[in-house]
């Protein structure tokens, strides 16, 4: 009886692996055909860097040349967190305690690491204008720091109410959207910053994006992580 089930599964498995090897051969040929001396758009990015307002080409691409992409990507992030929040049961954002107690060693490590991570995030945000760094890198470091704090049993501070958490989640996208739309009132295109305002605008948007991305990542973890109090018992009453 198990043999009858096993055999077609094994045959399926072999067919699947064979197909995947074929896909690999095709993909390998495809990637090896990528022209090696074609430098893509790198030179045009370098040529137009002075009109972007920043000196780091990655930041220039993210927030100026292809700002439309980035705007929509932040929208995807906000949508994903709305999805995660709507799948959780009521009040999980309010409780938010994940570990039974703060383990002394972990707590000490957190106390050392988290201020350093916040410092690194601040540096990345500040340096992103002219060196590798920026809102996405800084935001992910902030998010990782928040996950670390949550995992080591620290509770969320009282002033950080669920409403404020939701505001911080949305603020990056809202600031970006407003900054993108305002040029349209002055006979310009979406996201077309005036030249002399480009740098302060990009830094303003990036600062709020950093907080939003960090808060989105932490909230994703908190709201999808299983809380320490077993609320399955509560669900039993229904």
């Amino acid at each position: 009886m198990p043999n009858n089930i096993e055999r077609p599964r094994r045959a399926q498995h072999i067919v699947a692996v064979g197909l995947l090897v074929a896909v690999f051969v095709l993909l390998a040929r495809a990637v090896l055909y990528i022209p090696m001396h074609d430098t893509g758009v790198a030179s045009s990015i370098q040529d137009n860097l002075q009109i972007s307002g920043v000196l780091n080409p990655v930041t220039a691409v993210l927030l100026n040349f292809r700002g439309y992409d980035t705007l929509l990507e932040i929208a995807v992030l906000v949508l994903a967190i709305i999805g995660v929040l709507s799948l959780q049961r009521e009040g999980m954002l309010a409780s938010g305690r994940l570990a039974p107690f703060a383990d002394p060693a972990l707590s000490l490590l957190t106390r050392i690491l988290v201020p350093m991570m916040i410092l690194i995030a601040g540096y990345l945000l500040w340096a992103g204008e002219k060196a590798p760094g920026g809102a996405f890198q800084a935001g992910s470091i902030l998010g990782a720091a928040g996950v670390l704090v949550t995992l080591s049993g620290h509770v969320r501070p009282g002033w950080l109410s669920p409403a404020i958490v939701k505001i911080i989640i949305a603020v990056g996208f809202v600031v970006f959207l407003v900054a993108a739309i305002i040029p349209m009132f002055f006979d310009k295109n979406l996201l077309e910053y005036p030249l002399h305002l480009a740098k302060p605008l990009i830094i303003l948007i990036e600062t709020w994006l950093t907080f939003s991305i960090g808060m989105i990542l932490v909230t994703m973890f908190i709201s999808s992580a299983a809380p320490i109090t077993d609320d399955y018992v509560r669900g039993d009453a229904t």
């Binding site: 760094g133 990782a144 996950v147 999808s224 992580a225």
Partner: peptide
């Protein structure tokens, strides 16, 4: 290096924790 930092914090850290 900046992608490495993001990957270590998110790809390994946050995704791993999740």
């Amino acid at each position: 290096p900046d992608i490495a930092l993001t990957e270590a914090a998110l790809g390994a850290g946050v995704t791993g924790a999740l």
